[in-house]
Computed example of a mutant assay.
Amino acid sequence: MPSPSEEQVITPRVLRAWPLPDPQGGKESRGTVLVVGGSRFTPGAVLLAGVAALRAGAGRLQLAVTGSTAAALSIAVPEAKVVGLPETDGGSVAGDVPDQLLELAAGADVLAIGSGLDDVGETGRLLHRVLDAAGKEAAVVLDAYALGALSKEPDLLAGRPQPVVLTPNVTEAEHLLGRKPREDLAAEARELAHRYDCTVSLYGHIAAPDGRAWREESGDAGLGTSGSGDVRAGIVAGLLGRGAEPAQAACWAAFAHSVSGQRLAPRFGRTGFLARELVDEVAYTIATV
C-alpha cells in the first residue's frame, strides 16, 4: 500500500497483491446494489451503471428510475428489479421519493446515486431521504448530479456512518471544489477526499481520506464518451457489493474501466467504442488481472 505522501501507480501486480474478496455461496453473498437515477430522457445511464455493477460481480441489482421509463428498463435489464419513481413535469426524478424506494435503500448493501439525474434541487431532496433510510454499513457511490447536490450542500454527508466513494469528472470536481481544478489532479483528488471525508476517483487519480493515493495510467481518449462515467460508477458499486473496501473498489474500477477501453481499441479505434461495449469487457478484464 502507498504511504500517505505518495501516489502509487495501479498495475496488475499491485492489484494481485490486493485481491478482491471472493464471496462463497449464493447471490446474497455478493451484495445487493441499488442504482437510483435516470430522468425521463436518460434512463440509459441507469442501465449502464446497473449492468456494469453486475459485470463487476454484484449479486443482486435494483434500479430506481422515473415511472415513465421503468417498464422499458425492466425489459432491457431482466436481471434487475425495477421500480418507478414520481417525476416532475419536466421529466426529472422528484425528490419526494416513495416509501418503496426507502425500503429498498434500507435493505441495500450498496447505493449508487446520480446517473442520469438532471435536477440538482430535486436530487438534493432525494439524497437526504435515501441516505437517511440507508443502513449504517451500506456503501454509497455518488456520481453526476448527486455530486452537484453535494456541492450545493457540503455538509450533506457530515456525520453519516456510510462509507462513500465520489466519482467526479473534471467539471463535477470544479463544482465540488468551488473553483477550477488545477493541473495537479492528484492534489485535487486528495483535497476532495479530505474535504468530504470520502474516497475520491477523479480522472484516474484515487485518494482515500486517510491520505493514501493511487493513479491509473492506461486510460485513453476513448473513455471520454457518453455514458462512460456511468459505467465507472457502476463498476465501483459492483465491487463494493462483493465486499471490497472503498479505496480498493475505486482502484480496481479505475483499472477495469481503462483496460476495458484498451481491449476495445483494436476493433473500434481509440475513440470509436461505446460505453455499452465497455460494460461487456469489464468481467473479463477483472478476471484476467
Rank of each mutant, 00 (worst) to 15 (best):
V130N: 00
D119Y: 04
E79W: 14
S226H: 14
D143R: 07
P181D: 13
G261C: 02
E174G: 15
S29Y: 09
R215D: 08
A253D: 03
L156C: 07
S39E: 04
N169F: 11
E217A: 15
T167Q: 03
G148Y: 09
N169A: 11
V130L: 02
L34G: 00
V82I: 11
E174N: 12
A76Q: 06
G26T: 04
R179W: 12
A49E: 08
V170W: 11
S228N: 10
L192P: 00
Q248F: 12
S74L: 07
G227M: 09
P2C: 01
A207W: 04
S218K: 14
G107C: 03
F273C: 08
L240S: 02
E245W: 08
T171V: 15
W18G: 00
L185F: 10
L127D: 07
G116A: 08
I113R: 01
R195L: 10
E7Q: 13
L202P: 02
H257K: 03
A133Q: 04
V236P: 03
G269I: 11
R179Q: 14
C198E: 08
Y203M: 15
T69G: 05
L150I: 06
L20P: 03
V93R: 05
H257S: 04
H205G: 00
S228F: 02
F255I: 13
L102F: 09
L15D: 05
P2A: 01
R160A: 07
G95F: 11
D22W: 13
R195D: 07
Y203F: 11
G31N: 11
R182D: 12
E217K: 15
I206M: 13
G204S: 07
R129P: 01
C198I: 03
S39P: 04
R263I: 10
L127Y: 02
P4W: 06
R160H: 12
Y203Q: 13
D109A: 10
W252S: 06
A17S: 09
S5C: 02
S260G: 14
R276E: 06
R40T: 12
L177G: 06
A237I: 01
A53E: 05
A53I: 07
L102E: 06
D230E: 13
D197R: 15
S39N: 07
A45H: 10
L111F: 11
V82K: 01
R160T: 01
G229P: 10
I235D: 00
V236W: 11
T123C: 12
E28R: 12
T11E: 06
G67L: 10
R30G: 04
G269Q: 08
V77I: 11
G91V: 13
R60C: 10
T11W: 07
L150C: 08
S115W: 10
A76I: 00
D143M: 05
T288R: 14
A94S: 15
V14S: 12
C251Y: 11
V236K: 08
S226W: 13
E245N: 12
A64N: 09
D155I: 01
A256R: 13
A254S: 14
P98V: 08
A138T: 01
A17Q: 15
P168K: 12
V82W: 04
T123Q: 05
L104R: 13
S68C: 07
A58F: 04
L111P: 00
E7T: 15
P12N: 05
R195G: 14
A45G: 13
R16V: 00
S5M: 10
